[in-house]
Amino acid sequence: MKPSLHPFWAGVRAELPLLVGVFPFGLIYGTLALNAGIPIVAAQAMSSILFAGSSQFAVAQLIHNAAPAPVILLTIAVINLRHMLYSASLAPHLKSLSLRWKILLSYLMTDEAYAVAILNYERIGGTAFAHWYFLGAGLALWTTWQTATALGLWAGAALPATLPLDFALPLTFIAMVVPALKNRPAVAAALSAGLVALLAFSMPYKLGLMLAALTGIAVGTFLESRVERNAIPPQNVGRDIISPNQERE
């Protein structure tokens, strides 16, 4: 097997449990888009060009309400703002890749692919084939999203207008938080972000998620600089992001 194929399939495998939650979501998007009066080809094109679930739901709703294009575009921009955080977070790991790889992996940068890819980068660091892992995860999600959309569009007329959306986020997603909790500032970042996410949940357009993430980042950064001032000798300050260290207190 080519050395790039092993990480590629490892990425696909890591993404699999998340697909369980993504598939019904795509199915429902397809149905909803049809009911909103979006032509089949445009609904499928939205899944492959926009490729961002929550914003696609919003578009379907807004098209249904005959909202003007600038309003819809602004909504898309606000809902997808969080991808800039993912972009910044992944950027140091993608730095040495060619422009083609950067474009491809940016296109595949969804919540689910980000979660799987960033944890892999933090676990193994920047090995020569780590981007293949990201590609595997991203393509697995992409294929699932396109297929689920197509099935939703195809079955659309046969499905009821409102489907029960009662599927839990897979446990895997929850289990992903754990390896991210590498030290006390990270735990504090996670807890404060989680708390703000709960409090700000009624904010529209995923702004609650954005606010929560920024709060967590601020809390973690602040605590780390305090810990550092108190206990860590100066030579440890400039650690590499590629190899984050363990408990540091």
């Binding site: 910044a88 997603f173 989680g194 703000v196 973690g220």
Partner: peptide, 18 residues
């Protein structure tokens, strides 16, 4: 330094409401 806290912050911001 700030970017190191993106994963724990974002992942729990997704998971907590769920």
């Amino acid at each position: 330094r700030a970017l190191r806290y993106v994963p724990p912050a974002v992942l729990s911001a997704i998971v907590f409401p769920e």
